[in-house]
């Protein structure tokens, strides 16, 4: 990671929803610059607006005020320049693994041979060789999310947005997928924004952990994690940072009562 070019810039972001007569403030005064190739985790208690943040970046929600710049261009709606990975996978059950991965390429009218070359590459990258013709209901949760990641990467987006991507997986698969994601990330050199509520997960994968406060969602603190990967979950450093972040989160939950 060179870390000197800003890929994504969130400026004074404010997002609120109408709720009955009142209004629910989901995100307030949010400012963040994300560097090229950086792996940023956004961590926060449930209902803190972290998923909303990701959906605004993806263009699925409009900001109430403020703006988000992707490579200096303001985001105005969804687009294939941002690849999104969803917690519940969202694979089309009527499409095979290959056809799911080629969905975005199909939309962009990329010729069939070229689509196949691209999907082959990503099927290989996520370790799904031999499952090209399978349908999603024949895959395990971990394999489904491998398809989800390959599909998001197939469009060669400037940034990968991941919304609790391993939240629906069992603990063992989750740990494996974190390692797999780091392998893919180091091969692809993509910028990643990763939403999670697991401190352990955030410390294991991220270059930077952004801790959000609950309602309204603001940045509470940012932790840099500068150690080499793979990180040792049992190590002293890991434990102490984990403890620090947990304390930060706990104060957040208590002060919110």
């Amino acid at each position: 990671m060179d870390g000197n070019e800003v890929v994504l810039s969130i400026k004074d972001l404010h997002k609120s929803f109408r709720k009955g007569d009142g209004e629910l403030v989901a995100i307030e005064d949010f400012n963040l610059d994300i560097m090229d190739g950086e792996f940023v985790c956004v961590l926060g208690p449930s209902g803190c607006g972290k998923t909303t943040l990701l959906r605004v970046i993806a263009g699925l929600e409009e900001p109430t005020s403020g703006k988000i710049l992707l490579k200096n261009k303001e985001i105005t709606g969804p687009g294939s320049d941002r690849g999104m990975v969803f917690q519940e996978f969202g694979l089309f059950p009527w499409r095979t693994v290959r056809k799911n991965i080629e969905f975005g390429l199909e939309i962009r009218k990329i010729p069939k041979e070229e689509r196949k070359t691209i999907s082959d590459r990503y099927i290989d990258l996520v370790g799904l060789k031999g499952f090209e013709m399978s349908h999603p209901d024949e895959l395990s949760g971990g394999m489904k999310q491998r398809v989800g990641i390959a599909r998001a990467l197939a469009n060669d987006p400037a940034i990968l947005l991941m919304d609790e991507p391993f939240g629906a997986l069992d603990a063992q698969t989750r740990n494996l997928m974190q390692k797999e994601l780091l392998r893919i990330w180091s091969e692809m050199k993509k910028t990643v924004v990763f939403i999670t509520h697991s401190v352990d997960e955030a410390v294991f994968v991220a270059d930077r952990v952004v801790v959000m406060s609950a309602r309204p969602g603001k940045i509470k603190s940012i932790f840099d994690v500068e150690w080499e990967r793979p990180r040792d979950r049992g190590g002293v450093e890991f434990a102490s940072l984990r403890k620090k972040i947990l304390a930060e989160l706990e104060r957040e939950t208590v002060s919110n009562r």
């Binding site: 699925l60 519940e88 089309f92």
Partner: peptide, 29 residues
């Protein structure tokens, strides 16, 4: 139609016609 499928398709760059053809139609079958 599962709203998640619509979100997925939008983030993949689908316009309204594509949503209809490639997501809504197959899931209505």
């Amino acid at each position: 139609v599962d709203p998640l499928f619509l979100d997925v398709a939008k983030t993949q760059g689908a316009d309204r016609l594509t949503l209809f053809k490639k997501v809504i139609l197959p899931s209505a079958i």
